[in-house]
């Protein structure tokens, strides 16, 4: 995979519940995308005051057709940059860099897979479901959100999955509660071999805990797409790090934009999120008493 920078035309922008869905002509990105990849989108004008790109999971790509490749992503307009983006109209140009990140890894043999999405976090799971089903995997979905209008892809999930469980915090759709409340039953019923998830960090932690406790504590592997604040998305700024156990067993502050966003759940140092644990590589060299920016 070789990320490319593409200035593409907005083909469509639609409201989808509390979210927007934007499709951009981005050949070069579309063809290379695999489930779990993301794009980094420039916001504001070329001489505007917002310099940092916004990261969005890729929901769908179409690699051929009259427009060439297109990329679709789902976003919530909450801050300045995403609000600007929500005001783009067809034919406007937006600048995308992608595909970025390390995508989900797929099982070599057919396996039973449970896919858990929270809020817009379900967006990358439909491409994944497609790829899994093509490999003969069974797919079951758990889709959760705070409220019904923040539930994304309910219809897609129903169409693709052997079963779907919906949860909302306020009970406005599906069961009232959290995805992790219903996950144990879904794992049992599906005889799940692996859990994939994307959503807020607290949800991922709960999904990991449930998966690790499955089958009377034998546990099943997880592939979790994390969301850390990013400035560049391409691996050069070191802002998007979290403590992760590397292959050699050493905890390192890893860049979620290039070494993630998908990590196996058992590699993430849940005990130390938002901190630099003492046993992380290079933690000893940090002298707490003195300030070093950069």
């Amino acid at each position: 995979m070789n990320p490319v920078q593409v200035r593409g035309e907005v083909l469509s922008i639609k409201q989808a519940g509390a979210y927007f869905s934007m499709t951009v002509v981005a050949s070069g990105i579309a063809e290379q995308t695999r489930p779990g990849h993301f794009v980094a989108v420039a916001v504001g004008d070329d001489d505007g005051s917002m310099l940092l790109r916004r990261a969005f999971s890729i929901y769908q790509v179409a690699s051929r057709g009259v427009y060439g490749g297109t990329v679709e992503f789902i976003f919530a307009a909450h801050g300045k940059g995403t609000t600007w983006l929500s005001r783009r109209r067809p034919h406007d140009l937006v600048d995308l860099v992608g595909p970025l990140g390390r995508p989900f890894t797929l099982p070599k043999e057919p396996a039973n897979c449970v896919l858990v999405g929270g809020g817009y976090g379900s967006a990358p799971l439909f491409m994944l479901a497609d790829a899994l089903r093509k490999r003969g995997c069974r797919v079951d979905f758990v889709v959760g959100a705070a409220t019904q209008d923040r539930m994304f892809g309910a219809l897609d999930a129903k169409r693709m999955a052997a079963s779907v469980a919906f949860t909302t915090d306020d009970g406005s759709f599906g069961e009232q509660g959290r995805v992790s409340d219903v996950l144990p039953a879904v794992i049992d019923k599906a005889h799940a071999d692996v859990v994939y998830a994307c959503g807020p960090m607290a949800m991922l932690e709960a999904v990991y805990a449930v998966s690790a406790a499955a089958y009377n504590g034998q546990g099943i592997p997880t592939q979790l797409a994390v969301e850390e604040s990013m400035a560049c998305g391409i691996g050069v700024c070191m802002t998007c790090v979290l403590p992760v156990i590397a292959d050699d067993g050493q905890t390192r502050m890893m860049r979620s934009c290039v070494e993630g966003p998908v990590f196996p759940g058992d590699r993430i140092r849940w005990d130390a999120l938002g901190t630099v644990p003492d046993d992380a590589l290079g933690a000893a060299a940090m002298t707490a008493s003195v300030e070093v920016p950069q």
Binding site: M50, L51, L52, E228, S229, A231, C237, M238, T239, C240, V241, L242, R252, M253, G274, T275, V276, A280, L281, G282, A283, A284, A285, M286, V292
Partner: peptide, 14 residues
């Protein structure tokens, strides 16, 4: 000289 872990997050603000 030595490896450095850097600081905890958040590490940036626009």
């Amino acid at each position: 000289m030595a490896a450095r872990s850097g600081r905890p997050t958040p590490r940036m603000a626009e």
